Computed example of a mutant assay.
Amino acid sequence: MKNIQNTIEKIIQKLTKEEQTISFAESCTGGRIAAAFTAVSGASTILHGACVTYSNEIKHQWLGVSREVLENDGAVSEPCVSQMLDGIQKMTGSDYAIAVSGIAGPTGGTEFKPVGTVYIGLKTPFSKEVYHCHFDGPREAVQERSTVYAIEKLAEQLEI
């Protein structure tokens, strides 16, 4: 994670210069994205807040993820992460949002959603994308790779 710190510093500098903000809605990453940002000086200028919404009920209550999406598509799905993005942005009023939901393992996987399946969403003032990823390795590796991927996708969008 140390090599991602430089990228975060550049993100903070760019968003600060543009007077823009960001917020996070995390599930399988357990707050790692927020922790990575708050480890860098200057994050308070751009980071509005973050939620670790691990349970389906909290995804519904806090972020407004519909019960229909949770029941039909599941928490680990594009529709869920899309609604998580909308919910965290509505809650915080931030310009940018990242949302993550996945199966870090070693349990919880299925034939259709194996361990390592992660959906990572990024909402900007101009677009909303949800990426379907699969990361191999133990739980910690899946969580770390998801965190790094999300931060790198944000950097790409910001052209850093």
Rank of each mutant, 00 (worst) to 15 (best):
67 R>D: 10
67 R>I: 08
149 Y>R: 00
17 K>N: 15
9 E>H: 11
5 Q>M: 10
128 K>R: 14
17 K>H: 14
57 E>M: 12
116 G>E: 01
129 E>R: 15
143 Q>K: 13
77 S>I: 04
68 E>I: 08
150 A>H: 04
125 P>G: 00
89 Q>P: 01
150 A>V: 02
54 Y>P: 08
137 G>D: 00
93 G>Q: 04
66 S>W: 00
16 T>K: 15
142 V>K: 01
44 S>E: 05
137 G>K: 03
17 K>P: 07
10 K>T: 07
19 E>M: 10
87 G>E: 05
65 V>R: 13
152 E>I: 02
8 I>M: 05
42 G>Q: 06
46 I>K: 07
142 V>P: 04
139 R>V: 00
147 T>W: 05
147 T>S: 09
139 R>T: 02
11 I>F: 06
121 G>Y: 11
3 N>G: 09
97 A>T: 08
98 I>K: 04
82 S>N: 15
65 V>S: 06
141 A>N: 14
70 L>D: 00
110 T>K: 03
18 E>M: 06
121 G>Q: 10
49 G>V: 09
114 P>M: 04
82 S>A: 13
122 L>S: 09
76 V>D: 08
67 R>P: 03
8 I>E: 03
2 K>N: 11
57 E>S: 13
99 A>Y: 09
119 Y>T: 00
45 T>M: 08
152 E>F: 02
100 V>A: 10
8 I>T: 03
94 S>C: 12
13 Q>K: 15
123 K>R: 15
73 D>P: 03
56 N>P: 04
92 T>C: 12
98 I>F: 11
64 G>K: 07
145 R>A: 12
132 H>P: 11
87 G>I: 05
2 K>P: 08
23 S>L: 00
91 M>W: 11
48 H>S: 13
101 S>V: 03
53 T>Y: 12
83 Q>T: 05
57 E>V: 13
110 T>N: 01
157 Q>T: 07
15 L>Y: 05
105 G>H: 02
41 S>M: 13
69 V>I: 14
103 I>K: 06
58 I>K: 15
158 L>F: 05
153 K>C: 00
9 E>G: 01
123 K>H: 13
142 V>A: 01
130 V>D: 12
158 L>S: 02
11 I>N: 04
118 V>D: 07
38 T>E: 04
132 H>A: 15
51 C>I: 14
2 K>S: 11
145 R>F: 03
128 K>N: 11
94 S>V: 06
148 V>S: 02
76 V>M: 10
143 Q>G: 00
143 Q>L: 01
113 K>Y: 03
47 L>E: 01
124 T>F: 01
71 E>S: 13
34 A>Y: 10
116 G>P: 05
111 E>Q: 12
156 E>S: 10
54 Y>Q: 04
128 K>V: 10
135 F>S: 00
5 Q>H: 13
59 K>N: 06
24 F>K: 07
157 Q>R: 14
14 K>P: 08
41 S>A: 15
91 M>H: 09
82 S>T: 15
73 D>E: 14
1 M>F: 02
109 G>C: 04
66 S>Y: 00
130 V>A: 06
43 A>V: 00
25 A>W: 04
54 Y>H: 11
112 F>R: 14
105 G>N: 03
81 V>N: 11
156 E>F: 08
122 L>N: 10
108 G>D: 03
154 L>Q: 08
98 I>R: 04
70 L>S: 01
124 T>M: 02
98 I>T: 02
39 A>G: 07
88 I>S: 05
140 E>W: 02
13 Q>W: 08
121 G>R: 12
91 M>Y: 12
108 G>R: 06
26 E>A: 09
